[in-house]
Design a protein around this nucleic acid. Sequence first.
DNA 1: TAAATTCCTGCACAAAAACGCACAAACAGG
DNA 2: CCTGTTTGTGCGTTTTTGTGCAGGAATTTA
Lengths: 249, 249
Amino acid sequence: MLKKERQAYILHQVNLHNKVLSSSLSVDINVSEDTIRRDLQELAEEGKVIKVHGGALSHSFSQVHFPPNEVYSQSQKRKIAQKAISLISNGMFVLTSGGTTILEMARSLPPQLKATFISGSIAAILEYMHHPNIDVILIGDKISKSSKITVGSEAIAKIKQMKPDLCFLGTNAIDLKHGITDNDWEVVQLKRAMIESSQKTVCLSIAEKINTFQPIHICELSKIDILITELPFDDPLLRPYSDAGIKVI
Amino acid sequence: MLKKERQAYILHQVNLHNKVLSSSLSVDINVSEDTIRRDLQELAEEGKVIKVHGGALSHSFSQVHFPPNEVYSQSQKRKIAQKAISLISNGMFVLTSGGTTILEMARSLPPQLKATFISGSIAAILEYMHHPNIDVILIGDKISKSSKITVGSEAIAKIKQMKPDLCFLGTNAIDLKHGITDNDWEVVQLKRAMIESSQKTVCLSIAEKINTFQPIHICELSKIDILITELPFDDPLLRPYSDAGIKVI
DNA sequence: TAAATTCCTGCACAAAAACGCACAAACAGG
DNA sequence: CCTGTTTGTGCGTTTTTGTGCAGGAATTTA
């Protein structure tokens, strides 16, 4: 059998089944695994397949990319993301909400980090999936079209079963008097459950949202352990919060 | 034998078998391999064949260089998607697996359709979310990075709680003797649960996958209610399946 | 942490290609 | 008819290509 012929066969199999194993191909076409590996490597260099340990994957399959769209005040959010990442260590279980700040964090996670991320936000999950070393746990239930996250009693029940080390909340509004507030009933239920379950709750919020509030109450400030903004920790705007016992970063 | 005559013969052989070996041609026509090689080279320069190490391939063979942005065998999948959609009516609960065929169906769902779609496939969910009128239920659990779907006991337990009207399975391999088979253990577990829960199971499969099999068994043919391919329902290839009691569309 | 796969690197060896050359047949023109 | 040229073919020799194998490194799995 000719080399090109064999490669065409392999390519065909990959496109057909989305995945092939070097071992099974080698018995299929009766050549050594080395040869298969070399073929896969060539095909991968030509961009026809994606080579992975033990075989190859179809290219079309793993291309579920989300438009890395323009985010409002991205530079601030990036700063926040960096601070948030510094709290995560290897082996941690991290529960996150959705929101652009969280997404920014998800994209900036260092590649060596090994941790487990849990979320009901589709967008966040997509970002976590691209990461080579983190395990991703998706919270299921009905999907809210407006917020692109799973909401409902099932999701809340699932969250209550967990005891994650950290919970990152993309915060919509935070205020000394009203605490954390939001504007979507279903999201609020979910965030409440997240806060209850977690050992530490971290609020990510751009300074703009500090001292603002929204119609629905999520929780008191006292439930929050850490507050992250793009400002330095000793910014006067944040002073009341650290006075209230929140660790401000 | 004249040179032209010989080249005509070679060309004929290439078009007939899609490939020729210099070695076998040389004994066929009783000339040295050098001569064959020179002939092939000339034919290649004229664009009549594609020369490779050891012989030559027909042009149609290498035309499997499918256009880059197009999904593999998309037109077939579109045809399948259309047939699948005809089975869905308003108000139905539909459980689907992942796979490119399912994605094609998800994209083609008519905008007026009001139904509930349930899936653990991230890519499928993304498509369903774009639809204006369908409710989306996401099955949660750990995400398998290779297949981009949620897998695990939680996901399976959740599926077992449901009684969807229809279950669409993107099929990797179907065979009279082996039934439905696949190549990913976790995916197999999930698909089994899906079949068990559903009132009707529909297999979507391009004709190429008919009468092929993969290492892991999912279920017997008898569990399948409907089989959809891009072929007409009375195609001889499908005859054994309708004889086996499966409704073929 | 240990065991098992899988991967990579270099090497050996066979098959095929490339190159140069020889030689013979076909051809062209005096 | 002869001679010089072109063309087609085959034969060594040298390179290149394709493949398998051994071993150690890297990665996955238990």
